[in-house]
Design a protein around this nucleic acid. Structure first.
Length: 883
RNA sequence: AGGCGGGUAGCUCAGUGGGAGAGCAUCGGCCUUACAAGCCGGGGGUCACGGGUUCAAAUCCCGUUCCGCCUACCA
């Protein structure tokens, strides 16, 4: 065989690209539309077409990739459905910015041309994030990539909208919506971010119409008084009992408005009198409806005062506020100004302060849809992990409000509704009608509004699989197996997919939802560009390698907890990647020239029997962890096992045999080494796809990609429970000697002699057949094993269970040090014994605790007592020597 | 206002009723022929505070406090 030169350290950059291309070329990410295999499917949370990879994406997609790779190795027909979201407002903003840079704007180029420009932008820059996902190793079936604006998905959108309309679940009406004056569009309630803001509460005098004096109202937005059509007080409020049928005079505009009584008004707040502006406040709107008040819109789409604002017409809303306050002051109608902190809504896209404005919009009636979506989770048809999110989900679903789905932007799915210019009739249909059904006119104009981006996202789990056509993909993969996402879009996206999936497919869109945490910086702060605390995933991958990065994310992704990412942590796991690399290097060096060694039966040494047993256990544990989305546990198990068992003990123990003369033992060890390495690689592959493939390909006899290798199962390895106990003794003795050497500062170059004293024949057998391991790993020259011997003078002793390990230190032993060491040990044990004895002397404990627990404590006391007496003997010995 | 999560070693965090753990950092000793991105050994914690349930509490319950987040129409 040709000698493979293996580098001393792993160089991620050299191999990552190579293997990704290899996987793609060999079609290893492809799903089968029809298959005998069990299906496993995930739809990717579609990143925005404008997006570039940030930590949230990295975590989200790493977890999905872990699941997909794991399930493929488990033999499933895996579909990881990729795609992107057209991201209405975000994308439109980007292209508008381009235009602005050229001194133009969208109105100058016109709607049609603008949309063309957006498509052009998409062709040019839109694929960026997908390539970044590839760098991350994501094993999506890229041939199936979808886009929320592509033809098929647009068809699904129309189909859904029209059907909902026909069912009465879509309607159009005048309501208060959140208006972003910068984006020039309505926003759904969810798209408004409330932020506590230092503001002022203005107390304004509204003079009575028919008598002296005035009513004082409190407001944070004085400019809206221009649209006031009433002042409300609570009917129970004694202060205002006398005011029925009274009027006040609206300041500035100087017109009479009625005083009305409504129990909505809080008597405790402000003056207990509330100005009512039905066109610019959601609550006032409701009150206005009840009392048949007129709604007067005074702020336009640009956030400027309109012609109904009288003298303030044309002013910006904030400028108007200032001017009105000045005018009120001058008229002595401003009673006082109090500092006031309250939540102010901002546009989630551009952070502009939103303005509640009355306007005509399209809504989805969510009540019936939400009820079904809520029920599906209550029934367990969809399970949310971790389950505490179910409460949040129910709370939202049960208090849901209708969803404003129209947006006054250009980039998006244009609402399939047509208005008759002649009679005003509204037609909702998949295709433009020829003429008006009501009056026959041919003059029909399509609605200019587009749909909320989340409308198309809500259909993602079935629209990407070909709906409304009945496809094999839908048949095979719907409902999808699991949705992996962050809690920040639980309402935006997950909830709405549940509603749409249930309504249009008659079944939930996913069996499980795994909600992962948010990635924060090392100080627990949300990463954001403005804070400058963003760690760029691409830079991390460059510096530490993709595998180390992925493993870090998985290891930190404990359920229900945010991920705090620090570079030190990633560095630590890069060391782990390198450790694996070097362990493999060691194994491969020893397999050199062997070809396919035949399995040698019956000569397995203790370390081999042990490592197979552990492989069996660990495979089982990792599998269970992954099945329950306990990624951090799965990662931790692999880390612990590979580093501290496979490398620290097994690899060290096989060395002698490998370097010895017994060919049969050598062959057996090589085979075991290879088995253990291959199993470790397979366990790690979902987490670290690149390095595991790179090593896999170097193993003699390993066939094809590791992606196609079966994931290790408990039954793949011979379990030998006695090997666990035997290794425990052996490790205990070795650690005991090492401990003494360390504490006594014995140079590693200095070998020592050891006398082991044990009464147990089984232990004698184990230790004597593994003498060489003790010699090598503990640096002992002569090791003898006896029963009931005298403690040699000038020796330090470790006590392991019933066994004493005397380390002979002629000329090396500092008696004082040894006394100190023994006292420390004795102290610890005495404390332990004290605690356990306290339990055993408690009758309640003996009676009520389960018997196995009692037995355990008893056994522990016995063990400890034995050790204690031996340690005490040793201590006495040294105290005698001192005298 | 309501809801959720959290407070465990110097730091970051695991640990949902029975012997307080890991990684990093730290200290001591080693270039031992896979790995100094390494090896061996050590030190370090009133599990936020106060009560309760229990034979037994970091873990369950109640209260207090601090931090973070989410939802909400108090002008």
């Amino acid at each position: 065989m040709e000698r493979q030169v293996i580098e001393k350290s792993y160089e991620p950059k050299k191999v990552e690209k190579k293997w990704y291309e290899f996987w793609e070329e060999n079609g290893l990410f492809k799903a089968e539309a029809r298959s005998q295999k069990n299906p496993f499917s995930i739809v990717i949370p579609p990143p925005n077409v404008t997006g570039s990879l940030h930590m949230g994406h990295a975590l989200n997609n790493t977890l999905q990739d872990i699941l997909c790779r794991y399930k493929r190795m488990k033999g499933f027909n895996v579909l990881w459905q990729p795609g992107m979201d057209h991201a209405g407002i975000a994308t439109q903003n980007v292209v508008e910015k381009d235009l602005a840079a050229k001194g133009s704007d969208r109105h100058a180029v016109g709607r049609e041309r603008f949309i063309e420009l957006v498509w052009e932008w998409r062709e040019k820059y839109g694929g960026l994030i997908l390539n970044q996902l590839k760098r991350l190793g994501c094993s999506c079936d890229w041939d199936r990539e979808r886009f929320t604006m592509d033809e098929g998905l647009s068809r699904a959108v129309k189909e859904v909208f029209v059907q909902l309309y026909e069912e009465g679940l879509v309607y159009r009406g005048d309501y208060i919506i959140n208006w972003c004056p910068r984006c020039q569009t309505a926003l759904a309630d969810l798209e408004v971010e409330h932020e506590d803001t230092d503001s002022h509460l203005y107390h304004i005098r509204y003079p009575f119409e028919d008598r002296e004096g005035y009513l004082v109202i409190a407001t944070t937005r004085p400019e809206t008084l221009l649209g006031d059509t009433a002042v409300a007080v609570n009917p129970e409020d004694k202060r205002y009992k006398s005011l029925s049928n009274a009027f006040v005079r609206l300041p500035v505009l100087n017109k009479p408005i009625p005083i009305i009584f409504d129990s909505y008004v809080d008597t405790e707040f402000g003056t207990g009198a509330l100005k009512i502006t039905p066109a610019h406040d959601p609550n006032d709107f409701e009150i206005g409806k009840i009392h048949n008040l007129e709604s007067i819109v005074v702020i336009d789409d640009n956030g400027r005062m309109n012609e109904l604002a009288g003298p303030y017409e044309g002013m910006d809303r904030f400028e108007c506020r200032k001017r009105i306050l000045d005018d009120l002051e001058r008229a002595e109608l401003l009673e006082k100004i109090e500092p006031y902190k309250h939540a102010v809504g901002h546009c989630y896209r551009c952070k502009t302060m939103v303005e509640p404005i009355l306007s005509k919009q399209w809504f989805v009636k969510t009540g019936p849809l939400a009820k079904a979506a809520s029920q599906a989770v209550r029934d367990g048809r969809t399970r949310i992990y971790p389950s505490n999110w179910e409460g949040v989900y129910f709370n939202w679903m049960d208090n849901i409000k209708d969803w404003c789905v129209s947006r006054q932007i250009w980039w998006g799915h244009r609402i399939p509704a047509w208005f008759c210019e002649a009679c005003g009739e509204v037609h909702v249909a998949k295709k433009a009608p020829e003429n008006c059904e009501a009056c026959g006119s041919k003059k029909l104009e399509q609605e200019t509004d587009v749909l909320d981006t989340w409308f198309s996202s809500a259909l993602w789990p079935f629209s990407t699989l070909g709906w409304p056509d009945a496809t094999d993909e839908l048949e095979t993969f719907y409902p999808t197996s699991v949705l992996v996402t962050g809690f920040d879009i639980l309402f935006f996206w997950v909830a709405r997919m549940m509603m749409m999936g249930l309504h249009f497919k008659g079944d939930v869109p996913f069996r499980n939802v795994y909600i992962h945490a948010l990635v924060r910086d090392a100080d627990g702060k949300k990463m954001s560009k403005s804070k400058g605390n963003v760690i760029d995933p691409l830079e991390v991958m460059d510096e530490f390698g993709t595998d180390a990065f992925r493993f870090t994310l998985a290891a930190l992704a404990a359920q229900g907890r945010d991920v705090r990412l620090s570079e030190e942590r990633i560095l630590g796991y890069r060391h782990f990647v390198n450790k694996l690399w070097n362990a493999a290097r060691f194994v491969l060096m020893n397999l050199e020239g062997e070809g396919d060694a035949k399995k040698e039966m019956g000569i397995h040494t203790l370390p081999e029997r042990w490592i197979y047993t552990r492989l069996s256990q660990v495979s089982d544990e990792v599998t269970r962890a992954l099945e329950e989305y306990r990624f951090n546990e799965a990662a931790g198990l692999c880390y612990q096992f590979i580093w501290h068992e496979l490398c620290d003990w097994f690899l060290e123990m096989v060395k002698q045999g490998l370097y010895g003369d017994d060919q049969a033992v050598k062959n057996s060890l090589k085979e075991s080494l290879k088995d253990a390495l291959m199993a470790a690689l397979k366990l790690l592959h979902p987490f670290m796809p690149f390095v595991t493939e790179e090593i896999w390909q170097k193993i003699p006899g390993a066939e094809g990609s590791i992606m196609k290798a079966p994931f290790p199962e408990a039954s793949d390895f011979v379990r030998d429970e006695t090997s666990l106990a035997e290794m425990k003794i052996l490790m205990g003795v070795i650690s005991g000697i090492r401990n003494i050497r360390g504490e006594m500062n014995i140079a590693p170059s200095k070998n020592v002699n050891v006398l082991i004293d044990t009464p147990d024949q089984g232990e004698i057998n184990v230790l004597s057949t593994n003498l060489d391991h003790i010699k090598t790993l503990a640096k002992a020259d002569g090791v003898s094993i006896e029963t009931g011997v005298q403690k040699p003078e000038a020796s330090a002793t470790a006590v392991v269970g019933q066994t004493s390990v005397h380390v002979l230190l002629r000329g090396l032993l500092d008696f004082g040090e040894e006394r100190k060491r023994l006292k420390k040990e004795i102290n610890k044990i005495e404390k332990d014994i004290y605690i356990s004895n306290k339990k055993l002397s408690n009758d309640d404990f003996l009676q009520k605790a389960p018997s196995d627990i009692v037995a355990k404590v008893k056994g522990k006391v016995e063990d400890l007592s034995l050790r204690l007496s031996k340690l005490n003997q040793n201590l006495k010995f040294f105290e005698k020597v001192k005298d």
